[in-house]
C-alpha cells in the first residue's frame, strides 16, 4: 500500500521562478490494482508519480510504502528501495542512446550485484516475451516508438518490482501501438503487480485496464468526491 499524507512539492523554492507542482495531496493507492492519474498537462501528474516512486522528495508531507515512511530515507536506502520496489516507464522512454537494447534493459540491475549472466538471461527473456528478441543488439536510437516503449517496459521489469509506474505510456504512440502497450500493462496487472499510470489519453480510460481514476488539477486531487472509483468487474 502506498500512502501520501499532505504531500506538497515546490520547485525552485525561494527563487523568482518558484512554483508549487503538488499541493497538500492525501492519497492512498491499494496494491495489485491499476490506478490512473488523469488531468490536463501541467496539472502535477508527473510530479505526483515522481513522489510516489521516490524519484523526488516532498517539500512537505510524507510518502509511505507498506507503512514505512520513505520520504525520510537517506538517498542510499531510498535508491535501494526504489530499485527493488518500483519499475519506471517514462513519457519520453528515456533510453540511453548509443547503448544496445539489451544494455539498456540491464541498466537497473547493474548496481544490484546480481550475477551478470542471470541478469542477461532475464533481460533476454523479457525482450523475447515482448517480441524484441531480434532487436537485442540494436542501438536504442534506431527503435520505433512502439519498440522503444516495450524496451522501457522490459527495463522497468528487470528487477522484478511489485509496482510499475508509467507516465503517459501511450502519448507518443498511434492507436494500434497504444492498444499493444495497454495489453502488456494488462498482463502485468494479471501478474499481481500494482500499476500507477498518468494519462489524458481516452484510449487508456476506455481500455478497461484502469480500475481507479484519480483526477489531478493545479497540483491537487480534485475534491474528495471526485476521486472516481471505477471498479472493474470482480475487482
Amino acid at each position: 500500500m502506498i500512502e501520501l499524507l499532505a504531500v506538497s512539492k515546490v520547485y525552485n523554492a525561494g527563487q523568482p521562478n518558484e512554483f508549487s507542482a503538488v499541493r497538500a495531496v492525501d492519497l492512498v493507492i491499494e496494491p495489485g490494482r491499476v490506478t490512473a492519474l488523469s488531468g490536463p498537462s501541467g496539472s502535477g501528474k508527473t510530479t505526483l508519480l515522481s513522489l510516489i516512486g521516490g524519484l523526488t522528495r516532498p517539500s512537505a508531507g510524507r510518502v509511505r510504502l507498506n507503512g514505512r515512511d520513505i520520504s525520510a530515507l537517506s538517498e542510499r536506502f531510498l535508491t535501494e528501495l526504489r530499485r527493488a520496489s518500483f519499475g519506471f516507464v517514462f513519457q519520453q522512454f528515456q533510453l540511453i542512446r548509443g547503448l544496445s537494447v539489451l544494455e539498456n534493459v540491464m541498466l537497473p540491475a547493474l548496481p544490484t550485484g546480481r550475477p551478470h549472466r542471470l541478469t542477461r538471461a532475464r533481460a533476454l527473456d523479457l525482450l523475447a516475451h515482448l517480441g524484441l528478441a531480434a532487436r537485442a543488439d540494436t542501438r536504442a536510437q534506431w527503435l520505433s516508438g512502439g519498440e522503444a516503449q516495450r524496451v522501457a517496459i522490459a527495463r522497468a521489469l528487470i528487477n522484478d518490482p511489485g509496482v510499475i509506474i508509467a507516465d503517459e505510456p501511450t502519448s507518443h504512440l498511434d492507436s494500434a501501438l497504444s492498444r499493444q502497450i495497454l495489453a502488456i500493462l494488462g498482463e502485468l496487472r494479471g501478474q499481481g503487480r500494482t500499476l500507477i499510470l498518468s494519462s489524458h489519453d481516452p484510449l487508456v480510460f476506455e481500455s478497461g485496464l484502469v480500475e481507479r481514476i484519480v483526477e489531478v488539477r493545479d497540483g491537487r486531487v480534485v475534491g474528495a468526491e471526485s476521486e472516481k472509483e471505477k471498479m472493474k468487474d470482480g475487482a
Binding site: 524519484l55 538517498e75 542510499r76 535508491t79 535501494e80 526504489r82 530499485r83 519506471f88 517514462f90 528515456q94 533510453l95 540511453i96 541498466l107 537497473p108 547493474l110 548496481p111 544490484t112 527495463r155 528487477n159
Partner: peptide, 14 residues
C-alpha cells in the same frame, strides 16, 4: 543520462 541512471536505481555513488 545521469538522471536516467538515477531514476532506474543507481545511487550517486554508483
Amino acid at each position: 543520462e545521469i538522471g536516467i541512471l538515477k531514476a532506474v536505481g543507481w545511487d550517486t555513488g554508483d
